[in-house]
């Protein structure tokens, strides 16, 4: 597979791309917290939060529809919230039959369901925007600055680096399996489920051992360059005046969104 399938970053020189990654992480998290705090059916707040998102989209030069198109990813999960349609007592809106049950959608249930979806949909889009305008290594630096323990950021950095190498290896294994999964005409190919699971497990075991051995070689390469148990990093980011200004402005705007919802 080509690395593009994993890269969510889009090279541009927009206002958002130029911000310090800490600012972007912080504002994204505050935005998501704010969405989660909004009460059900706070329509004006939802709309103003959406405007905030659109403004961010515009500042990213990626186009208004960029995050919209990619936000479908969270849709399937909406299924788990479907029960609130019927379970929250309120005025019945419509009743229909599903298999053996009579289901009644209530107004309160509908409001809650739609509110959950909107909150999620806005939040997911902001998270999509975050990785589209921030290179992942910069995101890791931001986490370091935000006091995430070094051992975790280091594991994440390694994961990001070797994600591409190991998924390539998996795809080679899968291709090798497929090219040998021949079938004789008229006969069902492959053994039973247990057999197929065993093949998959062998692949996982194989991949594990290769990864294990690779980690030993990497360790040697690290030792050769002076690693002795403690990792040092240079942090290329420094907060500029603009970064502070943007943070303050974003927090003020999000507070207004909250205020609108509480009035």
């Amino acid at each position: 597979m080509h690395f593009d399938a994993f890269d969510r970053y889009h090279e541009k020189s927009s206002f958002l791309h130029g911000l310090d990654p800490r600012v972007k992480v912080l504002v994204t998290v505050i935005y998501i917290v704010s969405n989660t705090l909004l009460p059900d059916a706070a329509w004006y707040s939802f709309v103003s939060a959406w405007i905030f998102l659109i403004a961010a989209n515009l500042l990213s030069q990626l186009g208004i529809e960029y995050t919209f198109k990619r936000s479908i990813i969270a849709l399937p999960f909406a299924l788990v919230a479907i029960t609130v349609l019927f379970s929250i007592p309120g005025k019945p809106i419509s009743t229909f039959q599903f298999l053996m049950w009579d289901l009644t959608i209530t107004d309160a249930g509908l409001l809650r369901f739609v509110s959950i979806l909107i909150r999620s949909w806005l939040s997911v889009q902001m998270a999509i925007l975050l990785v589209a305008v921030t290179r992942f290594p910069d995101l890791i630096h931001a986490l370091e600055h935000l006091r995430v323990p070094a051992i975790l950021t280091t594991i994440i950095a390694f994961l990001y680096r070797y994600l591409f190498v190991l998924t390539d290896e998996v795809l080679r294994l899968i291709r090798a399996r497929e090219s040998r999964s021949a079938a004789v005409a008229g006969q069902r190919s492959g053994g039973g489920v247990a057999w197929r699971a065993k093949i998959a497990g062998n692949m996982a075991g194989q991949l594990f051992l290769r990864s294990y051995e690779r980690s030993e070689r990497i360790y040697n390469a690290m030792l050769s360059r002076g690693y002795s148990g403690h990792l040092y990093t240079l942090n290329p980011h420094e907060m500029k005046q603009r970064d502070y200004f943007v943070t303050a402005f974003a927090i003020a705007a999000i507070s207004i969104v909250q205020l609108i919802g509480r009035l």
Partner: peptide, 10 residues
Amino acid sequence: DQLFSPTVFE
């Protein structure tokens, strides 16, 4: 194995 950091600079 030698290039274990995310970026060339690092």
